[in-house]
Design a protein around this nucleic acid. Structure first.
Lengths: 341, 341
DNA sequence: TTGAAAGCGCTAACAC
DNA sequence: GTGTTAGCGCTTTCAA
């Protein structure tokens, strides 16, 4: 007969005719509790529809069983998938997740970190909007609770020890690069987001591919926002070309890809015909598109799960670790040999 | 010089040489505070890097500035977008969001609601996995805080008053239906998810289309899970057909669409050629696919924003409302006239 | 205008 | 095995 919904432990104790501490003992599974006590208390708990106040518990235990997740843009399916992996693992471990969108604005990160700090989260999962914003780094240094960086590298600084999960974007990108080079492409356009770790890594990967084949780095990289607009604009710029025409494009993300494909359609270009195309991250579009689009693939759900695990580890053993997860190039018909001209 | 990070209000008071209540007054912008007091306190706050403990505030104020968001599957880009809209609006109003994945399992909903109850959230946004699970409804009835249902209708029952945001799926679907009927299609396959509001609405919409054209309802509906597997299996079943072959398919969601397209490709079927195709909800794939795929569109971010607004309203004025948002059919080349055979 | 003190709901000594 | 009580950090009367 759950009627109240706002009963407190004192009322439960009163109803059961026992002390508050006894109710607490029953509810926290303390060993020294008689069976009869347990039954009486549980009966009252059920009768009153009692829900322990986790705020009070958190205040008392100095542990909220809550973690904060700051993410640049949760509407990005890739990040939503990361979130899924992390939330599931954390929930199974008894933690709740406070989700905060930073809108990819570096100046908001510090504020969000402070908010989570005030909420006394036990730890944080962070997809920072910037790796070198001073306010953000200062906020991070002031933290007592463990944090896990998601695909971000911040400059080592005193008082900042963090765990991190990273994807080895460079390897997958290098594989994509050598694939294109081996197909005869030399003039490759790389469209990427802002200068964060994954952007740098992808750049390095492509550079490595040219080096591995003993070629001069005759690619062109266009940085910008991680959205369709930048994808489309950059694609247009690359296709209009300067002296040497682009023969292959690599889109560094699903939103960029959407922009690139829009520009292709506007011009009547078919991937793999006039221009070869590679994208980063698998989405339904990449495999179902005609022709299917080659991608640098990574397991984003696993990425989120590992991030959660690193945080749980840090919470338990106070250890900090960095884990690097692989990426993999998946060739598909959007990449074709450069026609001898 | 933010050094501590774990200072409490007493330490701030001590450092400033004032009473705790004075610190509290300064921090809560109480009017009767001298300028000098304000300055002294703020200096100490800065010096100690003090972050007020929101748990203690919540305990005392009976208000946590936190809302819970229970969602079936955050990795679904549509729901991620809803989340984006809701989180943004709530954050701007000063609330934090606790996100919980229910994995679309009805038996988890009640548990999640109880958890949020224990966390004393000020309100909840709910995408229930079931509209008639008894445990869930019981948990809902026991709630004191306002809730907003997202595209769900629960049976009216005593002690359960909720706000709701609904999409008018039926209208968009009816428009899609008449479009297909006017193209000559009669044997339409409707692939949908589990029997929740949006599934019912879409069914009604299609039925209405047949009725509007004075036709017998010669469509076929296949319910199942909202995933690619069901989409593919259902498409296969529809294409294998029984007596009368299907000439058009409507996929009730982006994940279902992925399955349908996979089956089309397996069989070498091109949408709009052998079989016309409509999907629900716009994603990059639908517009960029060749041929572009007709969709029943809705503004999911706005949906999330409105849900947040309804909750904020309920929190402020204790009012409950239901808002219905429109959907719109967007014809595209994936729908073509039925070839006279 | 400021300070002292009660109390929000809980847990963990400590006593019996 | 169970009860009493202090105290987690905060806000808000109530007095001064």
């Amino acid at each position: 007969m759950a009627n109240a919904g706002r009963a407190n432990i004192r009322q439960v104790a009163g109803h059961a005719g026992v002390a508050v501490s006894s109710v607490s003992r029953v509810l926290t599974d303390h060993p020294d509790v008689s069976l009869e006590m347990r039954e009486r208390v549980m009966a009252s708990v059920a009768e009153l529809g009692y829900h322990p106040n986790m705020l009070a518990q958190g205040l008392r235990n100095r542990r909220t069983m809550t973690v904060g997740f700051v993410v640049g843009d949760i509407s990005n399916p890739i990040l939503a998938d990361v979130m899924m992996g992390a939330e599931t693992a954390l929930r199974e471990a008894g933690y709740s997740v406070i989700l905060i969108n930073s809108e990819n604005q570096p100046e908001l990160d510090a504020r969000h970190i402070d908010l989570l700090q005030r909420r006394r989260v036990d730890g944080m999962l962070l997809t920072l909007a910037s790796e070198d914003d001073e306010d953000t780094l200062a906020a991070l240094r002031g933290l007592e609770q463990p944090i896990v960086l998601l695909d971000r590298e911040v400059p080592a600084s005193e008082g900042l020890v963090a765990s991190a999960v990273l994807h080895d974007h460079a390897s997958g990108m290098a594989a994509a690069g050598t694939h294109l080079l081996d197909l005869g492409h030399r003039s490759i356009g790389l469209i990427v987001g802002r200068p964060l770790r994954f952007t740098r890594e992808r750049h390095h990967g492509l550079a490595r591919a040219y080096a591995q084949r003993g070629l001069k780095p005759t690619y062109r990289m266009l940085e910008g926002h991680l959205d369709a607009e930048h994808g489309q604009r950059a694609a247009a710029e690359l296709l209009d070309g300067g002296a040497e025409p682009i023969t292959a494009i690599i889109a560094g993300g699903n939103q960029l890809l959407a922009g690139v494909l829009a520009e292709f359609q506007r011009r009547g270009i078919e991937p793999g015909r006039e221009v070869s195309l590679v994208s980063c991250d698998e989405i339904p579009l990449t495999e179902l598109f005609q022709p299917p689009i080659a991608v640098v693939r990574r397991d984003t759900r696993e990425f989120g799960r590992r991030a959660a695990e690193l945080l749980l580890e840090a919470l338990e053993d106070d250890t900090r670790r960095t884990v690097v997860l692989p990426t993999e190039f998946v060739p598909r018909p959007s990449c074709t040999p450069l026609a001898a001209s």
